[in-house]
């Protein structure tokens, strides 16, 4: 049962595999992007749970009470993830913009149809 003690990592692995499978197995480009989003979120969850210290509090040094002996969570992974979330949002935005343009140019966003149309063209 020891392996279940790190259940947060199991969640990360599960989400990551769901995301990766969706990217590979789904034909519709928007669904692929959703899978990509889940995949990225799993890594964000990994960092966030990594920074949490059991029993730790928010890393703000209090003004009055003596600051010694307080257990803090590690704020750095959380701060890093702010950047990673921005990167994820930007990727999703570029991806969706591309899907819109693909839909305009081809009239479809299904990967197998796109491949057929590309193959006929070349």
């Amino acid at each position: 049962m020891e392996a279940l003690g790190v259940w947060n990592y199991w969640v990360v692995v599960l989400l990551m595999m769901i995301g990766l499978y969706t990217v590979i197995a789904r034909d519709h480009l928007v669904k692929k992007l959703i899978g990509l989003g889940v995949f990225q979120v799993s890594v964000i969850m990994f960092y966030v749970s990594m920074g949490k210290v059991t029993g730790g509090t928010a890393p703000i040094i209090p003004d009055e009470v003596p600051a010694e002996g307080i257990l803090y969570s590690n704020p750095l992974p959380h701060v890093l993830m702010l950047t990673a979330i921005v990167v994820g949002v930007a990727t999703l935005a570029v991806g969706l913009a591309l899907v819109v343009r693909i839909r305009e140019a081809y009239g479809t966003a299904e990967e197998d149809e796109l491949q057929r149309m590309n193959g006929a063209q070349s």
Partner: peptide, 14 residues
């Protein structure tokens, strides 16, 4: 070019 960029986006993000 659009589909090429999209598949690069998927690979690059992974």
């Amino acid at each position: 070019a659009l589909t090429a960029a999209f598949s690069y986006l998927v690979m690059g993000t992974i």
